[in-house]
Design a protein around this nucleic acid. Structure first.
Lengths: 151, 151
DNA sequence: TAACGGTTGTTCGAATTTGAACAACCCGGT
DNA sequence: ACCGGGTTGTTCAAATTCGAACAACCGTTA
């Protein structure tokens, strides 16, 4: 077995900073959304994706892939949102296996109510902490990584 | 109420890239470690922190803060690692409330076994996907954010 | 049309995380 | 010595996540 290519100090710093920021930001967002509207971050993301989708609806599988989560996880959260009246399930025309998650008016209203506070938190957690140049450079790096990780 | 400062397209791109990369990388690391040595990512991080600490030991609270997790979460994972023989609990000299988590020889051996594969995954998930300049810029941005988020 | 492999969404059990509650302990001021 | 506020680690219930298993359905092929 060949010698592993250990991380040098710069690479270690990059990895540690990445892990730290990921966790801290995720934690902040989670707490804030919970206190604000009683939503979890996954639930908020579901509302956003449905609001952006044509007719406010998406197939369960599309939703799960978009959220980078498991099918069962998506099913669980949609169940929660359905009980809360923010989303309803609908049969899928042309495919009896399919299920459409559809945003309700109440779901859209909740999203509109939560969005300003959420955006402010995103700003204070990431965007506004960086200069325009830093933000552009960060995005460039993250985009490159995202492309490299596509299956 | 004033108009919220919505994110422009560049800011939205930054936020989305950040979320996507966070999730994808975390998912990759989790799966890889699980298959490799049967460790979760939190467990691996515990072993790393203990291995770096003087006498291979840390107070439970120090550990929890270092991991950016809750005290109960740290307690749970230390319990798992203790059952697996990779860590042992020890009383804390000079403070009867305290508990020291101590890395065992077996724990260190497991870490040494897991480290090369983990480093390779970190490279293929982030480090090696970027040029030296991109990595430096990414680290700069993340460090700035980390400083801005410190409590 | 019957059969086949592939897809879709749900359900289940197991694992994990969190915050609150709690008991035990520490320490500075009285 | 003794409060009284703060700290420490564990336990608990609740929420969430995942993958495997499953039943139902799809489209293609024979």
């Amino acid at each position: 077995m060949t010698q592993p290519r250990w991380l040098d100090s710069q690479e270690k710093a990059a990895w540690n900073a990445f892990l730290e920021v990921s966790h801290r930001v995720e934690r902040r967002v989670e707490h804030h959304l919970r206190e604000q509207e009683g939503l979890s971050h996954p639930q908020y993301e579901i509302l956003v994706r449905l609001a952006d989708a044509p007719d406010w609806q998406l197939r369960m599988t599309e939703l799960a892939e978009s959220l980078l989560t498991s099918k069962s996880g998506a099913s669980y959260q949609i169940g929660k949102l359905e009980k809360a009246g923010l989303v309803r399930r609908s049969s899928c025309p042309g495919d009896d296996r399919g299920v459409l998650a559809v945003l309700t008016e109440e779901g859209m209203a909740t999203l509109r109510r939560a969005a300003p506070g959420h955006v402010e938190l995103v700003r204070s957690s990431l965007i506004d902490l960086l200069s325009r140049e830093q933000l552009a450079a960060l995005t460039d790096g993250l985009d490159t990584v995202a492309r490299g990780l596509e299956d």
